[in-house]
Design a protein around this nucleic acid. Structure first.
Length: 211
DNA sequence: GTCCCGACTA
DNA sequence: TAGTCCGGAC
């Protein structure tokens, strides 16, 4: 895919560094990755805040599912997500709730593990790999597909086909992947929405405006 | 009513 | 591949 690095530079110039992921700890990041599935971040923020000082693996491991569901109610799909947080925490326990111990494992192996956890699909797995474990996997979300599609790129149907295509077009660099995805999210929120608002868009001159 | 940084089930 | 899960902001 030609021009991806130029796109990165344009977005970086337009929006500046994003300093992602917005979370105080790696575990909070992983919890946020589950809670934000098909949900606005403002609703996730309310759920995170509802934990108070209880946002720890030990708490989630021991609290009952109904109480956990009520804590995260604002994030939607709360019954499903309560089960997912339990499953995530159980996986994390394999590494004694220590991100350094998990990060010691090979990235591809970790990805396979994460994908076997109930509630963690490809996008969520890659988010966790990139933002909590600092492994170079490019995160594909609806924003990424929408923006690249409107810019005229041919988007493969399968998630991993697109991911590998993008990764092959960029230096395999955790910092670059981190910042790029953050910029994509910012661009999607500011301009490249489902109903686009193109006034002031930094890539308007090269956009195909395919809806 | 629409939309939101998806994933599972059948 | 469609149906389901689900609240909250707009």
């Amino acid at each position: 895919m030609n021009g991806l690095h130029e796109l990165f530079c344009t977005l970086l110039h337009a929006y500046n560094k994003r300093h992602w992921w917005p979370a105080k700890t790696p575990f909070e990041m992983m919890v946020g990755a589950i809670l934000t599935q098909n949900t606005t971040w403002t609703n996730v923020g309310k759920a995170i805040a509802n934990f108070g000082d209880r946002l720890s693996p030990a708490f989630i491991a021991h609290v009952n599912c109904d109480e956990l569901a009520q804590i995260i109610r604002s994030s939607g799909y709360y019954n499903q997500k309560a089960i997912k947080l339990k499953a995530l925490t159980e996986w994390y326990g394999k590494y004694e709730y220590t991100i350094e111990k998990a990060a010691h494992i090979d990235g591809e192996l970790l990805r396979t593990e994460l994908l076997s956890v109930k509630g963690i699909g490809r996008e969520t797995a890659d988010s966790i790999l990139l933002y909590a474990l600092h492994k170079p996997f490019f995160v594909i979300d609806t924003y990424t597909k929408r923006i690249l599609s409107r810019l005229g790129y041919d988007i493969p149907t399968a998630y991993d086909d697109l991911r590998l295509k993008i990764e092959a077009s960029l230096p395999r660099d955790v910092y670059l992947y981190n910042e790029f995805h953050a910029l994509i999210v910012e661009h999607a929120k500011r301009h490249c929405k489902k109903k686009p608002s193109c006034a002031g868009c930094p890539v308007e001159t090269v956009c195909q405006k395919r809806i």
